[in-house]
Amino acid sequence: MTPLIRVAGLTRHYQMGGTTVRALDGVDIEIEPHTFTVVMGPSGSGKSSLLYLLGGLDRPSGGEIWVDDQRLDTMDENRLAVFRRDRMGFIFQSFNLVQSMSALENVAFPMQFAGVIASQRKERAASLLSQVGLADRSHHKPSELSGGQQQRVAIARALVNNPTLILADEPTGNLDTTSGVTVMQLLSDLHRGGRTVLVVTHDPRMTRFATHKIFLLDGKVVSEAEYQSAALEAPQVPSD
């Protein structure tokens, strides 16, 4: 099967003061379509950098990124924006909802950039809010919703343009355990519905939903055994 995501020799270096930080250092991965992949790694391992690069939200220092047969690392900004709009849905740790908009408006927001007419936007957003169990909260502002509810709104927003790939950066990071499990369950449902889901997390409990796992240490892909061994050597790995 042709991989949906293919990354070869991916590097991402940052300049911090006079020092070069190698967030990703020659990463090669392939992710099949319709999989649920969890990228595990401690804080500073480069997992979020990998997710932003795969989402076309950042530019690599080197290497190639292919998503759905499109090369992202050389794509211009506007084509990249359209690619993100049509093929990808993002879920962030801090939800990133627009505080002045209602849940319904937040969900419908990306469709404005796709040129969808207002009535269709409203209809689809309401349907998605219903799917994530927030039909009765559609007119509430983010400040009137719990963390779990806000993340469900963000998931509905990620689905609004019907993307093939869902990218989630620590989606349960700001949630209590129950809400976290509900969110992971929702993501698992999306995977079972045929979408490709890639979740970046440091929480090992989330791996139970995964079909595939990728382990990152110091910007490199490592085996699960190497990762576990490193985890045992340094059990108090601080979270993000």
Partner: peptide
């Protein structure tokens, strides 16, 4: 700034 980042993430072009 974060709102701008979000707009771009959900498909807003530079022109938008």
């Amino acid at each position: 700034t974060r709102e701008i980042g979000l707009m771009k993430a959900v498909g807003a072009t530079n022109r938008d």
